[in-house]
């Protein structure tokens, strides 16, 4: 229990460092966004207007006042007004986009993790047999193709030539979001190709990771002992070998979560999917500071939460960590 509290404390301070850096970095850079705006308008803006904009962006008062106001805003969910989606507040766009991204990333990672693991287990247990010598290099090859290539191929083949799937978007504009069959089926239909892209590319690393972990374990005495005990093969493979091989994978899962939040950019932009990636790209092109900053913060928070969950999961799954403090 104490271990978990320490971890939570650690992640809270990490988050605090992240939001503080997020506050100071733009202020260390020469010129604030309001001044940039003022300069780019070449004197067409009055001094009063500049002051007003500075207030709106939170660049007035002492640094300390700004910092306190900034913290207050973060914890009330007020991230300011987005300039690209004016006059929508950043928070609104951000959470809307994040919903779609989490939908894509959540499903693709879960499927990759599950499939990759099962394939890795099977490959390792029959090391050198057909399944291993075919699927292991095949999955690694797909992994090496990377998302843009696979996305383009699928887009061209399935969406453009065969016209089996829509060319983009999360759902047709005329379908009103809601808990209706029409909406849900439209979303599922639109998500097929983006998800397929992410899954095809993603399986390889899980497959390879799990296979290597398993192979290192297979010659351990306790696996041989489990076989000697006359346990069923299923039990030896899953309760004895895979149960131990999965432990390092949990940590990678948390790390991948952050990475894929970034990796979803490609798929989202390609398929015009309304996720974080697509909005962030637009925001970067339009120098929408409020949005970029908030989005960065959000990704940081997500990665920290994912790590926290993996810490908890590790403690739950590995008794050696659970009792480390007692010994």
């Amino acid at each position: 229990m104490r271990f978990l509290l320490t971890r939570i404390g650690f992640y809270l301070s990490a988050f605090w460092v992240a939001i503080t850096l997020n506050f100071f970095i733009p202020r260390w850079m020469p010129g604030d966004p309001a001044t940039h705006l003022f300069v780019s308008l070449r004197g067409k803006m009055s001094e009063e207007a500049l002051a007003a904009i500075k207030v709106a962006y939170g660049f007035d008062g002492t640094l300390w006042d700004q910092y306190v106001a900034y913290l207050g805003k973060i914890f009330t969910g007020d991230f300011g007004i987005s300039t690209t989606n004016f006059p929508a507040p950043v928070a609104e766009t951000l959470f809307y986009a994040m919903g779609w991204t989490l939908f894509l990333v959540g499903i693709s990672i879960s499927v990759c993790f599950a499939l990759g693991m099962l394939m890795g287990i099977k490959a390792a247990w029959g090391q050198g047999k057909f399944f291993d010598s075919f699927f292991t290099p095949f999955n690694v090859m797909l992994y090496a193709f990377s998302q843009p290539v696979i996305a383009l191929l699928l887009f061209y083949g399935l969406c453009y030539q065969l016209e089996w799937f829509p060319l983009g978007r999360a759902h047709p504009p005329m379908v009103i979001p809601g808990f209706t069959w029409e909406f849900i089926s439209a979303v599922a239909y639109h998500a097929v190709v983006p998800l397929l892209t992410m899954i095809i590319v993603g399986i390889g690393s899980w497959h390879l990771g799990m296979r290597n972990n398993m192979i290192n374990l297979i010659n351990q005495d306790f696996i041989t002992l489990a076989q000697a005990k006359g346990l069923s093969e299923r039990r030896v493979v899953y309760r004895y070998a895979a149960r131990n091989a999965i432990l390092p994978q949990i940590t990678s899962l948390a790390m991948t979560f952050g990475y894929v939040l970034g990796g979803a950019y490609i798929v989202e932009v390609m398929f015009n999917y309304p996720g974080l990636g697509k909005f962030s790209l637009a925001a970067i092109q339009a120098r929408d500071y409020a949005f970029i900053q908030s989005q960065l913060l959000l990704v940081t928070a997500c990665v920290l939460v994912a790590n926290l969950i993996s810490d908890f999961a590790n403690v739950l799954l590995d008794p050696r960590l659970r009792y480390a403090e007692a010994a």
């Binding site: 002992l225 309760r239 131990n244």
Partner: peptide
């Protein structure tokens, strides 16, 4: 049945 040399490795650490 069998008793192994290294008692350290003969038991599954997570069960």
């Amino acid at each position: 049945s069998l008793v192994f040399q290294s008692a350290m490795d003969a038991l599954n650490p997570v069960l």
